[in-house]
Design a protein around this nucleic acid. Structure first.
Lengths: 350, 350
DNA sequence: AAAGAGTTCGTTATCGTTACCAGGTGCCTC
DNA sequence: GAGGCACCTGGTAACGATAACGAACTCTTT
């Protein structure tokens, strides 16, 4: 009895020998190319089935200089915001016969560089980078070395990469407007990573909208938070300690808001009566929080779909320079006060 | 000015020409192998840096028949249970210079087969399958064609794949024991996918533990639910309609429990006073639910770490036939009644 | 000074596939 | 019946990297 060793895979040559033809003929049959007689085609197909031949994509990739693989960089799949993007991108990729090389970079710039270089070494056909933290100059330098690239949630030079993003400034403006309309005046901000483009855009929205409402937002009421539940918990405690009078916490994303909710609960501060809380992203669990979270919803799955579709187009050499901007939507839940219940201008006492 | 075309990558030959040596010498320098004089080594390194050479992993893989890539199959990254496993596996993989090929199979057997075949075509060095739905026979047939494999959350023939799993029977028994101790008697079950090994093991635990307590669990109080929030919501409504007298819902996982909590809230049924709810997995958000969810926690990140470590060992030819079983832990939160507050034997009236 | 040992470096063949070109067969046309 | 034109089919050379072997060179040793 012979043991099956996966290292000794069936090759074109094996099939050719079995069918009594040349490797080229088999190659033509495998790739459904013309130039093979009906009789031999059937015979070769029989041999392929009999030996269980499967083409070696590595060898094919070496020859063709294409790997039918796409690299996808994500800050952290553990953040429920990103899996939706992954799903959207993957569904499109698989439908076109591509496979995904996924890398989490854990909000770490070094790992981002390493991931882009690893993709380069593997000769991926294209790259999608989600919410990259790298400075533009370095990022562009690395993306330029790829055949095609798309950046999610950040603007980019159209000759280097396409971009698909959400209008975070408008999203934040909607949240601030809602908070103001429900009577909040003394806002606290749990901001995101400084190097994050999305964080800067959101901060811009906060800044402009508060200014337009004539609200004061001093630096001591802005705290940088890690974009995680734990980060939000720590940041919220710090902010409350600095200024116990805040009546709303504007959080970088829903995870940070989740942490803030935990912290407020433990501090015995009522949400939204004493302090309102808003998140960003509308992750699937935002509606399950205690209380359910007011937040901004973007079509995340579509973000992934668009990104992959655009990448495939750019890989095919078409549609250079596209920049898709999706508009987000305000989702009001119980973590902010009801519009009518809030007499403007002050904190409601219990 | 010449435009940089990523298709014309720098090769060993280019470096060799630039340094005035043969390709073999360059290859030796790149791979840090002996047999190169100090002077030439420095000169070659200079050429590598000057041209920005990066080895072509595809070509290397063809020759070496190893791709330094590992295929990872996950039912759905959208379920927060799995990203933790991915992270655990990825951290170990990256530390060893491997890259992950990730595929979501969306609880679909066909996509599972397709993914395993795609991995085969790409000549991955090993495969990790999380909670596979395929029947054992077919799964083993496909895994056998890979150099090395590890199955997560399911037992397997040790010669074909290693396994790392959680003792789901014990986990479920703990939950049932807790429910019984807090006075629940008329349990309803929102069971998971029929083809899921984990679902069967959990069902076994429910079955045995209820039997040992002399409880009755008729078929009409068991409903199969899709392992998602929406699935849980639908299933919970259906179960309550069938039997409005249930005093506890045992859910396949935390997502299903989240759906059940939503349904109960909308039906105006108090949790845990009228109906207690338990989940399974302790996803990061379980503590944020309304009310926070009593569930079973397993070291998910470790599950991924162990799986990858075991896979690397099997790839190296060591440690065949390992089967790691992790014991889960009961996490009591507010979705179940307090032990003391529950007079045994009946439903508490409001 | 010659032989031996050790080092440095290059040549060749190969991994599995496909592009390109050349050879062969049958059939139609004038 | 010879030339021409389709159509099949096969040989060869790449794609980029490396293992194995062997040549050339340096240095030591007797």
């Amino acid at each position: 009895m012979t043991v099956f060793d996966p290292r000794d895979r069936v090759t074109l040559a094996d099939v050719a020998a079995h069918a009594g033809v040349s490797v080229m003929t088999v190659s033509r049959v495998v790739n459904d190319r013309p130039g093979v007689g009906e009789g031999t085609r059937v015979r070769v197909q029989g041999a392929i089935a009999a030996l269980g031949y499967r083409p070696n994509i590595v060898a094919r990739g070496l020859k063709a200089r294409r790997s039918r693989t796409i690299g996808l960089i994500v800050p952290d799949v553990t953040n429920p915001y990103f899996p939706e993007i992954v799903r959207g991108a993957e569904d499109v990729a698989i439908a076109h016969g591509f496979t995904l090389l996924l890398t989490n970079v854990i909000e770490d710039v070094e790992r981002e560089v390493a991931a882009l270089e690893a993709f380069e070494d593997r000769r991926v056909d294209g790259v999608i980078a989600c919410s990259p933290r790298l400075v533009s100059e370095r990022l562009e330098e690395l993306l330029e070395r790829h055949h095609a690239a798309v950046i999610v949630n950040r603007r980019s030079r159209p000759d280097i990469a396409g971009s698909v993003r959400i209008d975070h400034e408008q999203g934040m403006r909607q949240l601030i407007r809602h908070l103001v309309a429900t009577g909040c005046r003394r806002l606290g901000v749990l901001a995101g990573p400084v190097h994050s483009f999305a964080a800067r855009e959101r901060m811009l929205g906060i800044d402009r909208e508060t200014r337009e409402h004539g609200l004061d937002l001093p630096d001591e009421r802005i705290i940088v938070s890690a974009p995680t539940v734990d980060g939000g918990e720590i940041a919220a405690r710090a902010l409350i300690r600095r200024d116990p009078e805040v009546d709303a916490l504007v959080c970088f994303n829903d995870l940070v808001a989740a942490g803030a909710l935990s912290a407020l609960a433990e501090l015995g501060i009522a949400v939204p009566d004493e302090v309102a809380v808003v998140g960003y992203d509308d992750i699937p669990f935002a509606r399950m929080f205690t209380p359910p979270l007011t937040t901004i919803r973007a079509a995340t799955y579509d973000l992934g779909r668009h990104a992959m579709t655009m990448l495939l187009e750019r890989m095919a050499g078409r549609g250079r320079g596209v920049d898709i901007v999706l508009q987000p939507e305000l989702v009001v839940r119980a973590s902010t006060r009801h519009r009518l219940a809030a007499p403007s201008g002050g904190v409601i006492s219990l």
